[in-house]
Amino acid sequence: MLVISCIKQVPDTTQVKIDPVTNTLVREGIPFIVNPYDTHALEEGLNLKDRYGLRSVAISMGPPNTEATLRKACALGVDEAILLSDRAFGGADTLSTSNVLSAAIEKLGAEESVGIVFCGKQTIDGDTAQVGPGIATRLGYTQLTLVDRIEFLDLKRNVIRVRRKLEGRHEIVEAPLPVVITVVRELNRPRYPTVPMRLAAQETEVKVWDNSVLKLDVETVGLKGSPTWVSKIFSPERDKGEIIGDGVGDPEGTANLLIDKLLSKDLLAV
């Protein structure tokens, strides 16, 4: 059975600036990283591989340099890494991205049954959180979003039980396989690659599937298959924050105020 992790290469957004004149992202010289949520999607795929002996596969759609990201996945221990890359896939929005990813998952499923597809909750560049649910919809898999714990995986009954992290509460959900799970950071702690694995990864083959392999209708992929387009990007004016309490006169009370404030904004977990 396969566990597939979808990972996306994103610019290190802490280093991205918006060009004030052209209102576009200045991506020049910005290093790429694996979308932080996707490192958790990858880790959980590897966990299930370690615990249940599933075969773990990492897939990513992107330009050829995305290979670097997939090599990182190899260094962490995935059994197979596949890059979905074709000029025709370029300029994709979330709809066409999920079309391509779904086609790849379907193709993998034709060889070996797919149990779980892991996606990050969202990316730090596109930020839509739509691709995971999009894949589930297109493939007819059950979608389990915002998962922060896998309660169990029962391979005899082919069910999985997970915990979803929602605002102020948790939800335990059980679903039949196959499922698409989008993950939050609390799910796990990503592992660190060992040097032998890194070195081996430098020599592993990263498969590249273009549209001659996926055979999708070019009208459904890339720019052509994308009904959404960006009309403008700009930096919002930042609101000035407020000053609460009196840190000098009453440090303890002020600290309490601050903690309450952070809790109310869901920035701190109890």
């Binding site: 290190d12 290093p31 990283i33 660190y192």
Partner: peptide
């Protein structure tokens, strides 16, 4: 421990990644 086992006090994971990325 670090290179063959990737085993180290957990605080170091962030350090290593920050060092590599930034």
């Amino acid at each position: 421990l670090v290179q063959e086992k990737a085993r180290f006090p957990e605080e170091l994971l962030n350090l290593f990644e920050n060092m590599e990325q930034r």
